[in-house]
């Protein structure tokens, strides 16, 4: 009896706190989402039914933001895992100064998103005085106007730079536990390096990759600072993701009603995404 009751009791305080943390603000958000509530008119709070949802969902920005969110999350996942695997394999080799090289390669993960966006925007991607403009000029090419002509790609570059080291870090540790004997055995059987990678190492990495997908998705869905600092969602809506769209409603238009409706919509979408995500990669996590 005790072994059932105590665990429940122990976990209740945290669950309860977490529930309060989730439920109270979420409850208030749901409540606000049915009101006409603008911070500019704090005294006017009328019940408007589903009007806020109608405004948010029929706004042409919504579908674009949904698509942008998907593109951003998906591309960064692909890049960080591809490059992460490559770097991890490379850094797992025996070479001079391995410890130091590893330390350098994982550094971007510790950099504040605001700072990395500022550095990339001002020191690298600035079309007039940025380093990239100079590099291109060495080859006789004109500068690329990053945030105007390839805004989404620019954001993807910045975010991938931040998250690739995370993937590298996990995959590298995981590579260190590859069964050396098995690897030798396969090679003795005549497999080349690629085949060894494909049939021994890659299966070994499937679990860490699942972990990377899970953790990165959680953070990438709510990417905000990088967009705010560089493009503020533009040009037009080219880099507005759902998090940024809700932000525009809440802190640029100060329309709490619509922002709340937007928040609720995103929560529902996030739950659907989480459900499928865990279905897809869940077996790797057990």
């Amino acid at each position: 009896m005790r072994s059932n009751l105590v665990p429940k009791l122990t976990s209740y305080p945290t669950i309860t706190l977490l529930f309060i943390w989730m439920a109270v603000p979420l409850g208030m958000t749901i409540y606000f989402s049915f009101l006409r509530y603008s911070l500019m008119y704090p005294d006017v709070r009328e019940f408007t039914g589903l009007l806020n949802y109608e405004y948010f969902l029929t706004d042409f920005a919504f579908l674009e933001a949904l698509w942008n969110t998907f593109v951003l999350v998906f591309s960064v996942l692909i890049f960080s895992i591809l490059f992460g695997t490559g770097f991890a394999v490379l850094l797992n080799q025996n070479f001079f100064g391995r410890g130091l090289a590893r330390v350098l390669a994982i550094a971007p993960f510790f950099i504040m998103p605001t700072v990395s966006a500022l550095i990339w925007k001002n020191l690298f991607m600035n079309p007039v005085s940025g380093l990239f403009a100079w590099l291109l000029s060495l080859f006789g090419l004109g500068p690329i106007d990053w945030f105007t002509h390839v805004p989404m790609i620019s954001i993807i570059i910045i975010v991938s730079w931040q998250w690739t080291p995370f993937a590298t870090l996990i995959l590298l540790t995981s590579l260190q536990s590859v069964d050396k004997d098995q690897l030798e055995a396969v090679k003795l059987d005549g497999a080349n390096n690629f085949q060894a990678f494909r049939y021994v190492i890659l299966p070994h990495l499937s679990r860490p990759i699942a972990i990377i997908i899970l953790i990165e998705t959680i953070f990438l869905l709510t990417i905000f600072a990088e967009i705010f600092v560089t493009t503020t969602g533009g040009p037009g809506l080219a880099t507005t993701n759902l998090a940024f769209l809700v932000f525009t409603e809440a802190l640029l238009k100060f329309d709490i009603g619509i922002a709340s409706a937007g928040g609720v919509v995103v929560v529902i979408l996030a739950n659907i995404a989480a459900f499928f995500l865990v279905k897809m990669i869940g077996k790797n996590l057990q």
Binding site: L18, M28, I218, T222, L242, V246, G263, V267, V278
Partner: peptide, 28 residues
């Protein structure tokens, strides 16, 4: 150590709470 049939669901729910954009609950 004491999983119940709801443990997995709870875990999933806990994780999905991370996916909400924070600005959605800023004013509350």
């Amino acid at each position: 150590f004491h999983p119940t049939k709801r443990t997995k669901g709870t875990l999933l729910w806990i994780l999905s709470t991370k996916m909400m954009p924070p600005v959605g609950v800023l004013i509350p």
